[in-house]
Structures are given as C-alpha cells and as structure tokens.
Amino acid sequence: MNDTSTLTLTFADGEGVADLATYVARSRTLDADGAIRLQAVGPVLAGWVCVVPGQGLMRSGLVLGLRTMALADDHRLDVTVPLTALADRFARRGATGDAGATLSVPPTQVVPQWASVSPPRGSWEPEGEVSTEALLAAAEEGIAEVAQGAPTGSGAAAVAMLRARVWAREVQGGATAGAGLAARVLGFARPGDGRVATVHRSGVWTRVTFPTGHVLSR
C-alpha cells in the first residue's frame, strides 16, 4: 500500500484536475460514500470507480467506470481513497481559486472488495458495437425497474438480487444495461449524441469504449 501522506500528482494542465473533479462529483451520485482507485503508470492516471458492485467472491456482475487523465511526467501509484476525501480537496481548491495542475493525494486509504478485482490490460478481442441511445434507454428502464421493484423496506439481499438481474441484461453487441448506467451517470454518453461505442472481450471481462471513458464488467 502506498504512503500517500506527502504524495502529489502533477497533471499536464489544470484542466486535468478539473476533469477529475467532475468525474468524482458524478461518481458520488452513485454512492456518496464510495471510493476511487487511482492508478498512475508513467504519464497517465487511471481513475476507477464502482458502478455495480457485483456479488460473490468473484464479484460476478461487477461494473466499473474508467477515465484516464494525462500527467505531466512519470508517476507510480496505486491507491484507493474515499470519494469524499477528494471532493473535500476540490471544494477547498474552488474556495481559494486554485486552478493549478498539482493535487495532493488524500492520506486515507480504503479497501473495497471491488478494488481487488482488476481487468486485464491486454488480449482484448472485438465483440461488437452498441449505440449510445440504446445504452441510455436501457439505463433509464433499469433505473425505473429497480425503483419500482425495490420499495422502501425491501431487504438488502432482495434489492441486491434485483439490481444484479437488471444491470446484467444484455443490450447490444455484448454490452449490458450496467454499461448504460455507467455511461449515463459518469457522462460518457449523452442523449442525442448519435454515437456508437465499441465492445471488446477478454475472458470473463467486457469493455465498452466511449470517446471519454470506458466501462468494464464481468
């Protein structure tokens, strides 16, 4: 586990910091108390967030969002920190008018189960394509179905099973409704953009790629 007490990330420009701030804010709409895995390899920072936690030891049904940002130079980092800790840093930056390209990493680390499951970096094979409109429609339908099928007072196990079933539903080209949820909430797709996302597979993993990010599920 990295010592983050004095660790600072230096982005290629201030826009990279602002991009991460937006990504964190959107992620918190899924889970205000959630976490983000920050992986830096060389000049690239990868920010992983959990959209659907999955079930069991192998996290079946897990859906992750991934957005990358350019760093100014080589970094080596792999930590998972609370979203609230980063949000607090961005709030302080906003209050002081800090538009710089450096960001200190929060010292508090967490160990959510999803962060221990890493998708492969290579061996991805083309699976198909999916329209962003189809993904967004599946997300809207899924949100409504979960809300209607899990009224207040439903047991945690029943809610988890319902969500797993809804978000594992295939949409097009191997992509699932869970990918649509991630694209909608994280801002990877917007209504009316008319785009098509590519779908790749590697073993049990599926990756849906958008111009602004990726969704990985298993």
Results as ranks from 00 to 15, higher is better:
71 L>N: 08
115 A>M: 04
100 G>E: 08
202 S>I: 03
166 V>W: 06
48 W>Q: 01
211 P>F: 01
94 G>M: 05
122 G>A: 14
108 T>L: 10
26 R>N: 06
30 L>D: 14
83 L>R: 01
166 V>T: 13
147 A>G: 07
148 Q>T: 13
144 A>L: 09
15 E>P: 08
122 G>N: 10
210 F>E: 05
113 Q>I: 11
38 L>M: 10
217 S>D: 12
175 A>S: 06
9 L>P: 10
209 T>G: 09
63 V>G: 06
78 D>Y: 03
141 E>S: 08
23 Y>I: 00
67 R>H: 09
100 G>W: 00
213 G>N: 05
25 A>I: 05
196 V>Y: 00
214 H>P: 02
41 V>G: 12
57 L>P: 05
182 A>Q: 05
194 G>M: 02
122 G>W: 13
191 P>V: 02
94 G>P: 01
27 S>I: 07
70 A>D: 11
19 D>R: 15
101 A>I: 00
95 A>S: 09
177 A>V: 05
115 A>C: 02
87 A>P: 03
157 A>C: 02
113 Q>N: 04
133 E>M: 01
81 V>T: 08
135 L>Y: 03
180 G>L: 00
53 P>L: 11
109 Q>A: 14
196 V>T: 10
212 T>Q: 14
20 L>S: 03
214 H>D: 12
26 R>K: 07
215 V>P: 03
40 A>T: 09
193 D>F: 01
48 W>R: 03
59 R>E: 10
126 P>S: 07
13 D>C: 12
98 D>A: 14
2 N>H: 12
146 V>R: 01
193 D>P: 00
197 A>T: 08
152 T>I: 04
65 G>W: 06
48 W>L: 03
77 L>W: 06
105 V>E: 02
166 V>C: 08
8 T>W: 15
102 T>H: 11
119 P>T: 09
4 T>Y: 03
176 T>W: 07
64 L>I: 11
90 F>N: 00
18 A>N: 07
71 L>W: 12
205 W>V: 10
110 V>K: 08
52 V>Q: 15
204 V>T: 09
111 V>F: 14
72 A>S: 14
109 Q>N: 12
52 V>P: 04
207 R>W: 09
69 M>F: 15
15 E>L: 14
188 F>W: 06
198 T>G: 09
30 L>C: 07
200 H>S: 15
137 A>Y: 15
186 L>I: 00
44 V>H: 06
101 A>N: 11
203 G>Q: 13
158 A>S: 11
128 G>I: 07
38 L>D: 02
216 L>C: 10
123 S>T: 12
12 A>Q: 14
108 T>I: 09
204 V>H: 06
178 G>S: 02
59 R>S: 08
157 A>L: 07
62 L>D: 13
143 I>F: 08
31 D>C: 03
94 G>C: 06
207 R>K: 13
105 V>I: 09
114 W>G: 00
218 R>Y: 04
73 D>Q: 15
5 S>Y: 10
169 R>Y: 01
31 D>G: 02
172 Q>E: 12
51 V>M: 04
200 H>N: 15
192 G>Q: 05
1 M>S: 15
41 V>S: 13
168 A>V: 04
69 M>L: 13
6 T>L: 14
192 G>F: 04
210 F>C: 01
112 P>Q: 09
26 R>M: 01
92 R>K: 11
